[in-house]
Design a protein around this nucleic acid. Structure first.
Length: 744
DNA sequence: ACGGGTATTACA
DNA sequence: TTGTAATAC
């Protein structure tokens, strides 16, 4: 199927490609730029005709809020979060709304901000191991995701943003408990902004009327339900995390994202389809996601398109002529507010990285200093991998090293330092060792053949200006099958040392304050732990029998993990599509059209619709009485500024790093023998390892083959990263398109 | 070469 | 599969 031909008949979705820039013309300023490659750019996909309810939730100046929660005296103040205070006051990465009134902007230096706003409070990003440590923000983000994922499919789009697909919940509400039958609408929902709705003297009444109209279109009614649900979720976020957020509710991700930024902070915006054309008509093209870069610039310069509406002047064919079939269609649809990109189910990140830049004069000039910094980075990475393992039961399979370098002395300093990767072995020492090997391999390649015996520590004209290590191909360890449990049991018998110690791990974890204790396990708040609390506080769920069985089994066998350390369904669902579990919301809000056989005999969608209805009703009424709305929350806090919430928690004391690593070993001439296949993910079972860690190399030859076929396959699936299926994009007929030449 | 540190996506 | 590049917050 050619999407170019059917673009209008079948609305398209956006995907992404990475872009490749080529200049067609020869030099000159007015050489015509043309798109000659397409990467990282939007891609068209068919969209189901059903009308969806999509929300985008965006935390308000998130890092600032996290710091304000830690240090409540900062609430309501002009404040910003800054990193690396040393140089010109550091760089701002988040700015409170109070400070924005003074013209303080992200990416200002701290000193600049002080000039514009002398009263501003600058809070430093925590530093650990000589580098910025973003863990507190990641963890805070997880708290939020745990709440926002309650009502529908949730995609963690970044540390502080999520997309929600609330279609099912909205449909259910419309069917069972439609707004038009409600006598009261939550205060927060009434404060929604509805695009295209003229606000009279009583905007709240207008909105209330819009939300409850009985003569509205079905699409509008669904959006109204979405608005009620999102208002409730936002209130829950505020009550449970003390963070405010803003949201957009629309029929697709693109519009929801657009809307979430329109009324900030702490507000939500609804985009009825009737408002779309007017909205886009005057919207600057660069404001659209995906058009903030080169493609947007090309549209401006080459086509004179300054607003999304301007795009409508161009035929799809014309756009395709300039930007290729796919992007042309994508632009054509974007101009009409059409996008079918799906909300992915993803609560956890797919990779972890730790990096640092060493700008200009601070460039690293010796292998020893590189080794020192790599060591720091690897320690952080290893720690995060360990947390992921303990909290989410996931294993990363690939270690990658990235570096930026310059050759001061050399003709071809164009050359990029190549990134290198290898199978990831757990254990800080191993990660360090491998990362260093990767670096040295990259350095040899970077320096080229002239590197005759330069293994010495001395500067040969190169400098490293950026270093990072990352772990990817993270897969969840399946649970919920008998055979896997039996397999573990075998392991335990063969390798008693694997029995080790969730106890030790817990002892090693930093001491927690009582209040933190309830939210944390293993040292960091996790999606799972917070979700567990939430679940506990809500209606008791009927437990999945197999899951229960497995937990019992874990316990009986004295197996490694305390029950609460077992994988949660929410975790597994992310990367394990075949897992026999569904996310919680899908149990409560069954997707009836879904193939019931998927649930492999034990239906998780067994709750009847009737049951659900009554529960939904109960939930509503419970919520509605006695719940503070966000505005009341604000008002009750005796403040003249918008955001003032009291909070008694301990102030954050950011610790300084100790860069002590005096033993700079001489550079080693390791070669990357590990890259050759044989060694796959290994879990070294030493100290500080969960009890169920083991070294796969030692068992999979001797033991794995002894196991029944079925078990072998399960174990293999567990051990290997899942292959991402390419079938989707193939089937979608994605074609290539081309990007404008890069301006130098 | 101070917009840092991450994260995702897609293609060769 | 590994490596590269773009985008965005």
């Amino acid at each position: 199927m050619q999407y170019s031909a059917s673009a209008h008949a079948h609305p398209l979705v956006l995907g992404y490609k990475s872009s490749n820039v080529t200049r067609l013309g020869i030099g000159g300023e007015n050489s015509k730029r043309r798109l000659t490659g397409e990467r990282n750019m939007p891609v068209a996909r068919p969209e189901s005709s059903d009308s969806r309810v999509i929300a985008h939730v965006d935390m308000d100046c998130f890092y600032v809020q996290v710091e304000q929660r830690k240090q409540p005296s900062l609430r309501g103040q002009p404040a910003a979060v800054v990193q690396y205070n040393s140089w010109q006051g550091g760089g701002l990465i988040a700015v409170s709304y109070e400070a924005r009134k003074f013209g303080v902007k992200r990416s200002m230096r701290g000193d600049e901000a002080k000039q514009v706003c002398p009263e501003i409070h600058l809070v430093q990003v925590p530093v650990a191991r000589g580098k910025a440590d973003l863990n507190s923000y990641r963890n805070a983000g997880s708290e939020v995701v745990a709440i926002l994922s309650r009502r529908g499919r949730c995609e963690r789009a970044s540390i502080d943003e999520v997309y929600l697909d609330l279609t099912i919940a909205a449909e259910a509400m419309l069917a069972n408990n439609p707004p038009e039958c409600l006598d009261t609408i939550s205060e927060e929902a009434v404060k929604s902004h509805v695009l295209g709705l003229e606000v009279g003297s009583d905007p709240g009444e207008n909105v209330r009327h819009w939300l409850t109209r009985s003569d509205a279109s079905r699409r509008d009614k669904l959006l109204a339900c979405g608005a009620l649900i999102v208002a409730e979720l936002r209130l829950q976020v505020l009550e449970e995390t003390e963070f405010t957020c803003s949201a957009g509710i629309a029929h697709n991700k693109m519009l929801a994202k657009l809307a979430s930024g329109m009324n900030k902070p702490a507000q939500q915006t609804v985009v009825p389809s009737s408002s779309v054309s007017k909205l886009l008509e005057t919207l600057p093209i660069k404001k659209m996601k995906q058009l903030g870069g080169k493609l947007g610039t090309s549209l401006q310069i080459d086509l004179g398109v300054n607003t999304v509406g301007d795009l409508l002047q161009f035929s799809e064919e014309k756009l395709q002529e300039y930007y290729g079939i796919n992007t042309g269609s994508w632009l054509c649809n974007t101009a009409r507010g059409i996008s079918g990109e799906e909300v992915k189910e993803r609560l956890l990140p797919n990779s972890h990285g730790s990096g640092k830049t060493f700008p200009g004069p601070r460039a690293l000039k010796t292998v020893a200093s590189v080794e020192k910094w790599l060591s720091e980075l690897c320690e952080e990475l290893s720690e995060r991998l360990q947390s992921d393992l303990e909290q989410n039961k996931r294993i990363a399979h690939t270690l990658t090293l990235h570096a930026q370098a310059h050759k001061s002395n050399d003709a071809d300093s164009f050359k990029k330092f190549p990134s290198k990767s290898c199978p990831l072995r757990y254990g800080t020492a191993k990660i360090k060792e491998d990362a260093l090997s990767l670096f040295q391999a990259g350095l040899r390649e970077y320096l080229g053949q002239y590197n005759v015996k330069t293994s010495g520590n001395q500067n040969c004209g190169w400098g490293i200006t950026g270093l990072s290590v990352s772990a990817s191909k993270i897969v969840a360890i399946p649970s919920g099958t008998r055979s896997i449990m039996n397999y573990f049991q075998n392991l335990e018998e063969i390798y008693p040392q694997v029995k080790l110690s969730s106890e030790k791990l817990i002892q090693d974890a930093p001491l927690l304050s009582p209040s933190e204790n309830c939210l944390r396990s293993g040292g960091h708040p996790t999606l799972q732990s917070t979700e567990r609390i939430a679940r506990h506080e809500e209606d008791k769920e009927t437990k999945h029998s197999i899951e229960e069985e497995d937990k019992e089994m874990f316990k009986e066998k004295g197996f490694l993990l305390s029950p609460e350390q077992l994988p949660d369904k929410e975790t597994l669902i992310c990367s394990s599509p075949d897992a026999e579990v569904y996310p919680k919301w899908e149990k409560e809000y069954p997707r009836w059209e879904k193939d019931q056989t998927e649930s492999s005999g034990v239906s998780l969608t067994e709750k009847s619709r009737d049951t659900f209805e009554s529960e939904e009703g109960k939930r509503k009424s419970n919520k509605e009485k006695g719940m503070q709305t966000i505005s009341r929350y604000f008002q009750s806090q005796n403040s003249d500024s918008l955001i003032q919430i009291e909070h008694a928690s301990t102030a954050n004391l950011s610790e300084s790093s100790s860069l002590s690593d005096p033993h700079s070993e001489p550079p080693q001439e390791n070669s990357l023998t590990r890259g050759e296949s044989s060694v796959d993910a290994r879990l070294c079972s030493q100290f500080k390892r969960p009890a169920w860690s083991y070294d796969i190399d030692e068992i999979d030859q001797d033991v794995l083959k002894e196991l029944p076929k079925q078990i072998q396959e399960e174990v293999r699936a567990w051990l290997r990263p899942q292959k991402r299926s390419n079938t989707v994009k193939r089937d979608l007929g994605i074609t290539r398109y081309f990007l404008p030449a890069k301006d130098k």
